[in-house]
Design a protein around this nucleic acid. Structure first.
Length: 580
DNA sequence: GCCGTTTTCGGCCCGACTGTTTTCAGTCG
């Protein structure tokens, strides 16, 4: 999303500003940094005209004033922020390069420049090797050695990783951590707990009978490549899986408050803390306190904490600092018989769970590019407790996917599925196909034949870089095909690899609702398409959502949980799901 | 640079850790 690009630039601007020593620069820098945080967590895409063109609307966002609003507008319309270009050009220092080095911030970088002429990693290396850094006041041998060590370390890229990869890393780490018998409670927090599609680092919260021993145990994990910090209550390490992991140990009686605090999002927490303040409380990771007497009110569980603030419990996936808090307020009031002002319509949803899922309508077999047979897929689905699956091999001209292209193969395909359905008990096997959509929005296979299937999934894989209008028409046209019941991975994005294609999402949702076509959440962790934000929008526009794995093997069926994560982030309940 | 039922000037979040000093500034989340 363009928001991340803007946030990144404004964050860098904050650093350039912070290099000035005066007090006003310090606060200016902090405001910029806060703005960058807000932008990166903001749930709507600033590329949408209703956002970046409307300066008044932008400045209503907490933390965004006139200046930052104009930066957003400028970046979306011109692709750059001239103030940033100016700051960068006028600075003799390759700041962005040097900031990658752990332990170097704006202040130290500035002193290294003023006193030793350091402008980039290369010149830093030279003065460090000469031993000049150790001689500076405030620096020392240790600092110099760390800088040299961290220069090598800075080369490693620190990209966000997919939630699926994070799941693997965490599973192994938790297994190890739990060997420490001092641990009372242990829970991953942060964006991992909020089930974001990618995570930048891992946060783990622990309560322990012996915090220091638990920390020692943590940093001794065999997959720790480097200890970044180690204290009495927290430690940070860099894992061999190229991921930072922060561990925090708290007193068991503050576990709930700490879990709430470390789960975030930052924006959500800021809103929650404001409510606390308005009610005469103070909220921190140590608990909810009476603001005047400092008396502890509650800290054991998240639920009671939210309830004390007259909010219903908010599921982590919803904690983005948007309207979930209003919904929680309304839900709480309704449940507790309080008078609701202005007859609100927004309440917290009862989110869909993995155990609610009893079918998967998008999967491939050996008929196209899948690894397993219809029989094997069906058996795997029975194991998962499903009552229904839809076999949906590629049909059309998508050559790389070994598609079904001719009538003979199509008939054989259909016959195989029908026979499997007859012979395999305990599950209903539907015949479908992921049919390629041509540039005009027609299916690449005769409709008379496709109508013999139970339903068709329309899938766009080719000619994806057309302009917005043409793409919108293309999608709408295919939605109007009476055989089509599901639109596969609607935006075509591949996380971190390919941006979504451009089309009018509102218009597509409108037609999808009219035509009774469900929009897919493709549960593959590389796709997660639609994303949570669009799912919420589709739901609000009355569309049904179909969560499918697009499995190409029996193992692929297990990825359903990632689709559920997205659905939950998009406020999806059981009734919003597509039924067939 | 942002914000405001004590507001348009004068405040701005904070706690843990590190490395340096010996009480603290800088960094990080």
């Amino acid at each position: 999303m363009i928001n991340d690009e803007i946030a990144d630039i404004i964050y860098k601007m904050s650093i350039y500003v912070e290099m000035n020593d005066d007090k006003s620069s310090f606060f200016q820098s902090r405001a910029l940094r806060k703005g960058a945080d807000v932008i990166s967590e903001f749930p709507y895409d600033f590329a949408l005209p209703e956002w970046h063109l409307d300066i008044d609307k932008l400045t209503k966002i907490e933390g965004i004033g006139k200046k930052i609003a104009s930066y957003i507008n400028e970046y979306v319309t011109t692709g750059k922020i001239s103030e940033y270009e100016r700051l960068k050009k006028e600075s003799p220092i390759k700041l962005e390069e040097l900031l990658h080095i752990q332990g170097l911030g704006p202040k130290k970088i500035k002193r290294l420049y003023n006193e030793l002429g350091v402008t980039d990693i290369e010149s830093l290396k030279v003065v460090a090797k000469k031993g000049l850094i150790a001689k500076l006041s405030g620096f020392g041998e240790k600092s110099q050695a760390n800088i040299l060590e961290n220069i090598e370390f800075a080369i490693v890229n620190k990209d966000r990783i997919s939630i699926a990869l994070a799941d693997n890393v965490i599973a192994d780490l938790l297994l190890y951590l739990k060997k420490d018998k001092n641990i009372i409670q242990i829970e991953p927090a942060g964006s991992y707990r909020r089930r974001k599609e990618t995570v930048g680092d891992l946060d783990i919260l622990i309560s322990s009978k012996n915090p220091e021993k638990t920390i020692k145990h943590f940093v001794s994990y065999e997959k720790v490549e480097k200890i970044l910090g180690e204290g009495k209550t927290k430690a940070s390490v860099w894992l061999k899986q190229k991921l930072q992991c922060d561990l925090r140990v708290v007193d068991n009686k503050s576990f709930g408050a700490a879990l709430q605090y470390f789960t975030g999002s930052k924006e959500h927490n800021i809103s929650i803390r404001k409510i606390a303040v308005a009610k005469g409380y103070k909220l921190s990771e140590y608990g909810l306190f009476n603001r005047n007497t400092n008396e502890l009110i509650e800290s054991k569980s998240e639920t009671v904490l939210y309830n004390k603030l007259e909010l219903s419990y908010i599921e982590p996936e919803l904690r983005i600092g948007d309207d979930e808090i209003i919904a929680a307020k309304n839900s709480y009031a309704l449940k507790n018989g309080k008078v609701l002002k202005n007859s609100p319509t927004l309440f917290l949803p009862k989110l869909v769970k993995l155990s609610d899922i009893k079918k998967d309508l998008h999967m491939h077999t050996v008929f196209s590019d899948g690894k397993n047979t219809v029989f094997e897929m069906a058996m795997a689905a029975i194991k998962l407790g499903y009552s229904k699956i839809g076999i949906s091999d590629h049909i059309g001209n998508l050559v790389i996917a070994n598609p079904i292209k001719d009538e003979n193969r199509f008939k054989k395909y259909l016959k195989t599925i029908r026979e499997a359905n007859e012979s395999i008990k305990g599950i209903e096997i539907l015949a479908s196909g992921e049919v390629e959509v041509d540039v005009n929005g027609n299916l690449e296979f005769p409709n008379e034949l496709l109508s013999q299937l139970d339903y068709v999934i329309a899938g766009i894989h080719m000619s994806t870089s057309m302009n917005k209008d043409t793409m919108t028409k293309r999608i709408i046209n295919v939605l109007k095909n009476p055989n089509v019941k599901i639109l596969a991975h609607p935006t075509g994005r591949l996380i971190g690899k390919r941006p979504p294609y451009e089309f009018d999402f509102n218009e597509v949702c409108k037609v999808a609702r009219e035509e009774g076509v469900a929009l897919e959440i493709n549960a593959h962790p590389n796709r997660l398409d639609l994303n949570s934000r669009l799912v919420r929008k589709a739901k609000d526009l009355g569309c049904k959502i179909s969560i499918n794995t697009d499995a190409h093997s029996t193992d692929g069926l297990l990825l359903m949980k990632y689709g559920i994560d997205v659905a939950r982030g998009g406020w999806i309940t059981k009734v919003d799901l597509f039924d067939l």
